[in-house]
Nucleic acid binder design. Sequence first.
DNA 1: TGAATATATGAATAACTATTCATATGATAT
DNA 2: ATATCATATGAATAGTTATTCATATATTCA
Lengths: 120, 120
Amino acid sequence: MDTKKPIEKCEFLCVHEDVVQEVLRKMPEEETLFQLADFFKVFGDSTRIRILYALRETELCVCDIASLLGLTQTAVSHQLRVLKTSKLVKARRNGKTVFYSLDDDHIHRILDMGICHLEE
Amino acid sequence: MDTKKPIEKCEFLCVHEDVVQEVLRKMPEEETLFQLADFFKVFGDSTRIRILYALRETELCVCDIASLLGLTQTAVSHQLRVLKTSKLVKARRNGKTVFYSLDDDHIHRILDMGICHLEE
DNA sequence: TGAATATATGAATAACTATTCATATGATAT
DNA sequence: ATATCATATGAATAGTTATTCATATATTCA
């Protein structure tokens, strides 16, 4: 079928089979790693990180966040939805205003560690 | 100039000015937060996370990683370059083979924390 | 030197995602 | 009820990025 194969592909000729098997055995589940990547992905956007670190200080309404960070209300709302879906923030309604805050202390600690990391 | 403005935009009428100022004062530098987002971004890709957790067990050559994770050699090489640029992995050449490993113990600890997080 | 092998890389493609625009919803006050 | 304000959301757009393809580089061995 495959009539033209100009260069013979290096199809893992060099694999250290025993090492590979050992690593496969010890590594976390595939599923776990995909979840972990998704978790980090949420932090991997400057808009969301800035929102999170603003909320680290105090709860804020959508307009406050937009003003604070120089963003449109719409952009902030969209990102807050992402953060809420990921259980990183929670919302509290007070009349027309919706106040957002970090979902729990666990998130606080993660953000504290983030700061810590950059200081190393 | 702006002849047609059907709906008057909500331009931060609700801002709690004092709170916003206080938060701005306390928050980390903009620059710092952008760096932090970039840092998380590297972890926020399943291919890279899987490579990192494979390397958490032992050093591996490019072919081993590709075989282990069911990826092409090219895809792995490209991502290893990203990880190397971000100082997360380092390379050691032995003949034709290049072995990659986590750059330092700090990265090890971060990966350990990742696992920890998912167990909560 | 030339063949073979392991890895790297530039360019093109494909997939994803953040932002914007227009508009809807939800709440208050008159 | 209606007008106004704060927020939410669907669709389109624009920007980004992971993967693939083709090929280059680096090293070893005959």
